[in-house]
Nucleic acid binder design. Sequence first.
DNA 1: CCTACGATCTGCT
DNA 2: GCAGATCGTAGGG
Length: 203
Amino acid sequence: MSSDIKILPRSFYESADVTEASKSLIGKVICTRIDGVFTSGMITETEAYCGRNDKACHANDGLRTSRTEVMYGTPGHAYIYLCYGIHHLFNVVTNREGLADAVLIRGIQPLEGTDEMAGRRNKPADKPELADGPGKLTQALGITTGYNGIDLLGNKIWIEDRGVKFPDVRIFSSSRIGVDYAGEHAKRPWRFYLSGSKWVSSG
DNA sequence: CCTACGATCTGCT
DNA sequence: GCAGATCGTAGGG
């Protein structure tokens, strides 16, 4: 029964294709134990960002700064940054060291600790607004930039495979949200989401 | 040093 | 539907 649950190994994050990694993360379960509180949710929506030839990516074409340094590090670590001065956005670093590929988590279906999430969000536990957006789910899970760079094979933030596998026909794609500044690259269909799920950002 | 702006969300109209 | 919030980062002087 519980033997179906396993933490994603480093090799999962070492995928050489960030769009494949992005798709594969749909259906996986992100878990946090923050201040001793366990919360979790199934990933419903992701976006791929590539370190080479992708103007939407913070680390595009080798741009290396203190902010982007984590993206150039070991896959399977968290890149968490502050967006619009308010929202903490959570990414997983993929591929291999030095390349700066990452997947942004944009939506989850809350599973465990929903009352705790509701408290953190000051929203009802059973409504999509609890976690149907990149800034909402981090608040629900208790994730802040203070955890930037953390290893996802540790015991604070991790991702599990619980044996849920959706058929490819249920994974829809679209252009990425909020990256119009990236010009032509903004049109790439690098957003992936579970069709029919309520727990997906409206955009 | 200074300025512009964002991988968003909320509340109000 | 739209404007305001809010602050770290990047880039330029």
